[in-house]
Amino acid sequence: MSDLYQLSITVNDTEYQRAIEPRILLSDFLRHDLDLTGTHVGCEHGVCGACTVLFDGHPIRSCLMFAVQADGHHIQTVEGLGSPDNLHVIQKAFWDAHGVQCGFCTPGILMTLVPFLENNPDPDEAAIRQAISGNLCRCTGYQNIAEAVKLAAESMRT
């Protein structure tokens, strides 16, 4: 077994110190070491986008990265966005527009959209679809996700 590596990482504003194997994927570390299971894993090869989290504010695929590469960085996961009783605007919009079916792809899509909406306060349909085109969803056909994004953009503007 390989040697352990001292990792210091900030996730959803909480700092964690852990000794881990260098080969542990960031996705596995978040899910199984920190028990933040909201980040999902659908392919482990960087295609489906289910594992998307924010790395110093940028969306990345946590299945394509080792946890040790996040040493000293800030990660945000869906758990840091809102809670069932206090949903983030985007989460609320997904609820209102029925942008969720099985919900497996949803955390990754939400994390993709957070910075997108910050940079694009009034996106049109084509821009929205382009923004989520790296996230696969097998249930919704994307239409209500697009609706949800419009709804979220609107409430964020007002």
Partner: peptide, 10 residues
Amino acid sequence: EDPRLLTGQA
């Protein structure tokens, strides 16, 4: 069921 799914609590 959505609030739980949307917040990673499901």
